[in-house]
Design a protein around this nucleic acid. Structure first.
Lengths: 142, 142
DNA sequence: TTCCTTGCAAAACTTTTGCATTAAA
DNA sequence: TTTAATGCAAAAGTTTTGCAAGGAA
């Protein structure tokens, strides 16, 4: 049984929403408080569960619409690491991911831990919008 | 209006299935013939359409089950580049991808065109099972 | 015969949408 | 008061599953 976020955190979230040009409604602030409380990767369903645990009354549609809104405004990042569902990343700084294919766990890889000594030139008429790197992990076979 | 694949191609596919330990039923050979006819990325729906165009009578369930079977046996590779659907890649050699976020187009990046001068060590107890690199592209501004 | 595969329909899941209601500026 | 956001239910889209029927060994 979790608790609702402290008022101070809610005020922080509200400020961040406003800073991104998003109107800070009660539901949006609560959703932000769940996802932005730490660097983490959560699914929409997990966020909804977190909200319900905290006593917030938010519908599933609002969770999805709000996460899309946040992603559009660059407040969060949406990841496609497996086909099953979207993962929402509270860390929007450039970084990469480990993905444990056994457990499904997602782990951040700091950007400095990967260096490219060669990258292909983008096709004519296009430019690079971003680089997604997922290092798949399996349990070590002794 | 496409045609059914030539018998020679079907025989090639049959051989490849047997080589992977997959029983070469008529439907499986036809599905393989569609996807393996060239290096390409196709969705399940596109493969089904290709089969129907070629006059094959294959159900959607069989397409999905068969693609999963092929992927399990390493005959094809399943990609998660966007959350919308799975893409099946006939190229199982190591390589990376360009993904045009405007058009949705997927393009292979040969493995030699990317070099890592630094990669993180996998967490204790795990080993690297593979590396998925997706370079997102957008139309060049101006 | 025995086991595996297929087709069909239905189910399961995730995500989006339409619309009446409610809240915010 | 005027506009935007929310909740609910239903719809949409992809993928999986249950089961009866068909085919291969």
């Amino acid at each position: 049984m979790e608790r609702a976020p402290p008022a101070a955190d809610l005020r922080d979230c509200e400020r961040r929403l406003v800073g991104c040009g998003i109107r800070p409604t009660a539901q949006r602030v609560r959703i932000a408080a769940v996802l932005l409380s730490a660097p983490q990767h959560l699914s929409a369903e997990q966020i909804l569960a977190g909200l319900r645990c905290g006593g917030a009354r938010v519908s599933k549609a609002t969770v999805y619409n709000t996460l899309n809104l946040f992603a559009t405004h660059g407040l969060i990042r949406q990841l496609s690491v497996d086909g099953a569902r979207a993962w929402f990343d509270s860390n929007v700084e450039p970084h990469y991911h480990f993905h444990d294919i056994g457990t499904g766990a997602l782990l951040d890889v700091p950007v400095q831990q990967v260096q490219f000594s060669r990258l292909p030139a983008p096709p004519a008429g296009t430019e690079v919008a971003g680089i997604d790197l997922v290092i798949r992990l399996r349990k070590k076979s002794m």
